Computed example of a mutant assay.
Amino acid sequence: MLDKSYYDKADEVIAVYGRKPDSLIPIMQDIQAAYRYLPKELLNYVADEIGVTRSRAYSVATFYENFSFEAKGKYVIKVCDGTACHVRKSVPVREALMKELGLNDKKHTTDDMLFTVEIVSCLGACGLAPVMMVNDDVHPKMTPDLAVELIHKLREGGAE
């Protein structure tokens, strides 16, 4: 069960976009921006409030890759494993991150909710391979050592 503050936030967002079915995506985007994920219980609430079936809201949320039903860390690290990055050794970068953060194939977010690591097919920066992103910042030509160094800087509150 979610805290009442989640529903209050949803009501604020709904008030901005209006109680209409066309508002579903922007409402979901704002809620996810606020919490770094889309709580399923809150999605149901929004659907009921704006007149969309719950199944429709769920199908929209699962169609778009940007939406996540799992809570994510403050820093979402996307490691590219597209062809160019893979050939230029993105796997050791990913492995170093996972080891440093104590994560594995089943656990993608640290217990302190500071880091989430995601493997993505392409970040569109093949010339900078291997590349990773931390939130919206691109980090080119990564090595395992540079990745671990970046984690240390972020833990200390350094810039992305």
Results as ranks from 00 to 15, higher is better:
F67N: 14
N135R: 06
H86A: 10
A34I: 09
R155T: 01
Y6L: 06
R56F: 12
R19N: 09
V120S: 08
L24Q: 00
L103F: 10
A129I: 02
A10Y: 02
M132H: 10
T62S: 06
T109I: 12
V76D: 08
Y75F: 15
V76M: 11
S59P: 00
A147M: 05
G18L: 08
M132D: 09
M28C: 15
A15N: 07
V13E: 04
Y37N: 13
Y6W: 13
I31S: 02
S23M: 03
A34W: 01
A96L: 05
D137H: 08
L97P: 05
Q32W: 05
L43A: 13
P21D: 01
L150E: 12
H108K: 13
N44M: 11
A15G: 08
D136F: 01
G73F: 07
H139G: 04
V87M: 07
K141Y: 10
P144K: 08
Y64M: 14
P130N: 09
A47R: 06
S121E: 13
T143N: 03
A125V: 09
P130K: 05
T53H: 04
E49L: 05
P92R: 08
V138H: 02
S5L: 11
E160V: 04
I50K: 05
Y45H: 15
L97K: 07
E149P: 00
I31H: 00
V138E: 13
D3C: 06
T62M: 14
L123V: 14
A61H: 01
K141T: 01
K106Q: 13
P140Y: 02
K153F: 03
I119K: 14
L24E: 00
L114R: 15
M1A: 12
Y35K: 06
L146G: 14
E156N: 15
D136L: 00
D136A: 11
L146A: 15
L24N: 06
I27P: 00
N44F: 12
I151Y: 08
P39S: 08
G157M: 14
V148C: 09
G82M: 01
M132G: 07
V148W: 09
R56V: 14
H139Q: 09
A147V: 00
H152I: 00
D30L: 11
K4C: 00
T109F: 10
E95F: 01
Y45K: 06
S5F: 05
K40A: 15
L101P: 03
G158I: 06
A71R: 14
T83G: 09
L103Q: 01
A84Y: 01
S90R: 04
S68D: 10
R155N: 11
C85N: 03
K99G: 04
R36T: 12
A96I: 08
E95Q: 10
A34G: 02
A147K: 02
Y35S: 07
L114M: 15
P39Q: 02
C126Q: 03
D30F: 04
S23P: 09
L24T: 02
Y58I: 15
A33C: 04
E41F: 00
V52K: 10
E100H: 03
G51L: 13
A34F: 09
G124Y: 06
C80N: 03
M132K: 03
K78I: 04
I27E: 06
